[in-house]
Design a protein around this nucleic acid. Sequence first.
DNA 1: TCCATTTGACCATT
DNA 2: AATGGTCAAATGGA
Length: 243
Amino acid sequence: MDINKKELVETLTRGRNSAMKLQNLLIQKDNDDELVCVDDLVTEISQSFYGGLLVLNACNSGDPMPEVHTGKTPALASKGRRGCYKRRKTVDSRMEVSETIEDGYAWRKYGQKEILSSNFPRCYFRCTHKQVYGCKALKQVQKLEDGSNMFHIIYFGHHTCPPPNNTSSHPKDHSLPNSPSTTTKSHIDPSAKEDDLTNKFSSASGAQSCPALVWKEILLDEFECFKNDGSLSDMSFDDIVFS
DNA sequence: TCCATTTGACCATT
DNA sequence: AATGGTCAAATGGA
């Protein structure tokens, strides 16, 4: 218990420090190089909150600490549980329309469905690092029907795995529906790639051009997710980050 | 041999 | 009953 408490304090402190650094960066913005730093900080904050919540949950339930690095999942999922799932809430989701399905993260395709209202199938991806980091990020990709070769992408959940280092990495090519008219287009348009981050967040949050607002929205979004988990019912965003 | 993709089956939700 | 999300066996590539 004491160990858990200490760990919780350290984890949240780390998050708080990162948040303060981020705040400073946002104040003195206008430096492109710092975008990467900001990204790192947000990731650290996110992971700190997540780690803190794991500790809190363990304290509340009396359960042993959850394994972050579990390796292979036990063969508990019997055949009888096949297809058993909860239909996803759309609350914790964000949509974007993009020329490419690449976003820097490594995704593993786990399903594809013909959708009644669409000529193109919908593809289902989960984070490749789900096993290693317990990352629950999911995304759905569906080709738009307007002939524009654009993709409608819906992200669910948040990455708890380390983010991709930079855009120069070469993420695996996700195969797209080999449906009749789908041109398995998964190559990366280099010119579009440079704007990935900006496009992603501007389309995700609706905050148009102010980085500070965008990042705050992202953090608030994260916070709301944690709050929905039930462990932060009495805490505000500012309580956690800046108290 | 390992890992990712494909694809049909299963099952919850509407 | 229809639809959509997920599972997992089969398959293929590195």
